[in-house]
Design a protein around this nucleic acid. Sequence first.
DNA 1: GAGAATCGTTCCACGGTGCTGAACACTTAT
DNA 2: ATAAGTGTTCAGCACCGTGGAACGATTCTC
Lengths: 252, 252
Amino acid sequence: MTGENGIQAVDRAFDIVESLTELNGAGVSELARHVGLPKSTVHNHLNTLERAEYVVHEDGEYRTGLKFLQISESARNQHDLYQVARPEVDQVVEKTGEISALMAEEHGRGVFIYRNRGSEAARIDTCVGDRVPIHCTALGKVILAFLPEQRRQEIIDHHGLPAVNHNTITDRDVLAQELETIRDEKIAYDDEERLNGLRSVAAPILDGSGSVIGSISIAGPTHRMQGDRFQTELPEIVLGTANVIELNHQHS
Amino acid sequence: MTGENGIQAVDRAFDIVESLTELNGAGVSELARHVGLPKSTVHNHLNTLERAEYVVHEDGEYRTGLKFLQISESARNQHDLYQVARPEVDQVVEKTGEISALMAEEHGRGVFIYRNRGSEAARIDTCVGDRVPIHCTALGKVILAFLPEQRRQEIIDHHGLPAVNHNTITDRDVLAQELETIRDEKIAYDDEERLNGLRSVAAPILDGSGSVIGSISIAGPTHRMQGDRFQTELPEIVLGTANVIELNHQHS
DNA sequence: GAGAATCGTTCCACGGTGCTGAACACTTAT
DNA sequence: ATAAGTGTTCAGCACCGTGGAACGATTCTC
């Protein structure tokens, strides 16, 4: 499921944890079936994980523990982007009433670091922590555009350009050309390339030396994301916010 | 560091991850020294963890990866308390301008599930994901008070009543008596028992069958937490909010 | 109620595997 | 140029994680 050869016991432990999150808690037998291992092995792992408090054993069921919260908060704060940008995202939400999100790149995929939405905003599928192909989002494309040439090629070579949707860009040349204009405008658009009915605008967030550390976006239902608002107003807001974040980031 | 006997490789992997968060990223040698293992062993673990994307290898340094965010979000959402209560906490913050937080119990300790603060509110040390002894917080005491007698004894037996502060309750009888009055009033107070200069009020959040699933609090600097506000006004707010959360929780 | 089929847990012997220390290339100080 | 520091690779041995079978305890099914 995970890699090809690493420490077997560790790979298995994480397979079990991941299965546990997918199943939203489960018993030993159910888990054993799900990961394709004998009950005793799974039991052994669960015991270990529980003793380390990464797993909780309640009401005859095992669940993933909140100790992961401690680690993930620390991981998120190591991207110092998060601490600086979070309040700005909240402000964008207040100003626009739509969805605003923060993304960082990791292992060639886009990770939602933070997300907030106005009360009238679209219900959306993505959650904080979700990992999506980087070429199918405004947030991702804008990161990709500002990454060093070499890294960009590595990522595309490794992950390819799978079609997530009938609008997804799957051609390298088409993508390359779009990334070019993204670099010029410092703005990326997503016209329902990942989710039908959802459009978004995103801007890059650069550090002092000019390398991307993440991106910020505004997203909403297509019928509200049109004309001048989509072409001018929202891009200006998101670009302005990105600049504020960059400034605050450098003085921290 | 972790347990006494479980799967060695798994325990070590998590030791390494924890060290990585403590050190805010590190190299192989530094890590090896920190966990007291040969470089090669640590290297092997880091490779495994990186391949599974739980660790990132950048600029010649290893850091904890954002994949933990995915798991922790899932773990947090399994406590369905979080989804329901989060907006209510935000409202309390808006109403009072102080700090409001959400806690759940796990492995006998109190875990901060969510926290928010007004712009004028006290700077505070605790973060989401932090795990604190359960007897030294209003949030924790109120959970302890409403836990089944047996569980409560287990927790106290296992963890004891360590003094976090010169005000911390360390006597079992004194604690038992306070828990009694907490059960009566459905309100717990923390009078600088964990942090000097910080007072707080907390109320329990019960599910349909009457068992605690968590607690909610308002906290602030002692000089603002006094008189009628501390004795009546804030307790009423926190209790009312807890009730709203309980209602929303049952209809979800 | 008896029986079958779950469940979770415990045990032990075997074989595979994670551990280790040494050797490697490489950069940075001295 | 030497030395001390990195990170990485390799291979053999001891050990430890593995998985099958057997255990009680529940919960179904008839």
